[in-house]
């Protein structure tokens, strides 16, 4: 027999764009998956040292401790305005915000709308978990009709609270928005698609093509009162039904863009 060489193939490692710190997210929460996907994309693009992130007020408030790059902490909902200020004086840097649904679709509705409308060359990662996670599970503008939360104990009554807001659909109507897509994190196949979309969004920014946003349907098992598995199932069924996945806006310039390495 010939000599057998031991060959080690590295199939998984910590992203350089993440710090060593363990996150505080609940078991089964998909915030961690989103972080990982963003970090992998930034690693693969080789832009960690040129990227500045903006953390929201929400469960991801500590994102600046988990991402290994320059970071700022915004006021609740104001990350897109802050990103605008930062990007305008740092046009060569990659600037992204990471925002929850309360942050982006409720208190920060004006800021996201106008940032998209201006075609601000930034990237927004929008975590839609149909609830206010950080404050203990109150209704979000994205909460589904009938969904029980601590502030809709009998379920969201559309007569009283109106209807969920579909931000991709709304923002895609703005001429300034270049890339607006919705993905889901409820299983591996969808997670891979989500990563491709995040890569595309950052590429759009790198090439100066304007406003990009990836909405990620996410889980909050803690405040939904579900196990991790039940929560993912609920994302895959109820949330995907209410928030159809897809590309809501892909500007012609992006369609003509050369495919980046990560797709």
């Amino acid at each position: 027999m010939t000599d057998k060489k031991m060959v080690e193939t590295l199939i998984y490692t910590k992203s350089e764009s993440l710090t060593e710190l363990g996150t505080h997210y609940c078991p089964g929460c998909t915030h961690g998956i989103s972080h990982r996907l963003i970090a992998e994309v930034i690693d693969e693009m080789g832009v960690r040292e040129d990227t500045i992130g903006i953390a929201p007020v929400g469960c991801a408030v500590f994102a600046y401790d988990y991402f290994n790059m320059d970071f700022a902490e915004a006021a609740h909902g104001r990350a897109p305005a802050m990103a605008t200020g930062l990007k305008r004086v740092n046009p060569d840097k990659i600037v992204f915000t990471y925002q929850g649904d309360g942050d982006l679709a409720s208190i920060g509705a004006a800021e996201i709308m106008h940032t998209a409308g201006r075609g601000e060359n930034i990237t927004v990662i929008f975590i839609n978990n149909a609830i206010y996670g950080m404050t203990g599970g109150q209704m979000a503008p994205t909460t589904l009709p009938g969904q029980k939360t601590t502030s809709t104990p009998l379920g969201r009554d559309i007569e009283m609270h109106g209807f969920p807001m579909r931000m991709c659909e709304i923002l895609s109507q703005l001429d300034g928005a270049s890339y607006v897509v919705r993905r889901s994190l409820h299983n591996v196949a969808n997670i891979r698609k989500a990563k491709k979309a995040i890569r595309q969004a950052f590429e759009v920014q790198r090439q100066g093509l304007g406003f990009s946003m990836v909405e990620l349907l996410s889980s909050c098992p803690t405040n939904w009162g579900m196990t991790a598995d039940e929560a993912l199932k609920w994302v895959g069924e109820s949330m995907v039904e209410a928030y159809p996945l897809g590309d809501y806006k892909v500007s012609p310039e992006i369609k003509g863009m050369k495919k980046g390495g990560g797709g």
């Binding site: 305005a81 305008r88 004006a110 800021e111």
Partner: peptide, 11 residues
Amino acid sequence: AAINMVYGAAC
């Protein structure tokens, strides 16, 4: 928004 843009640029 204006003051938060200021906040961002000040960073």
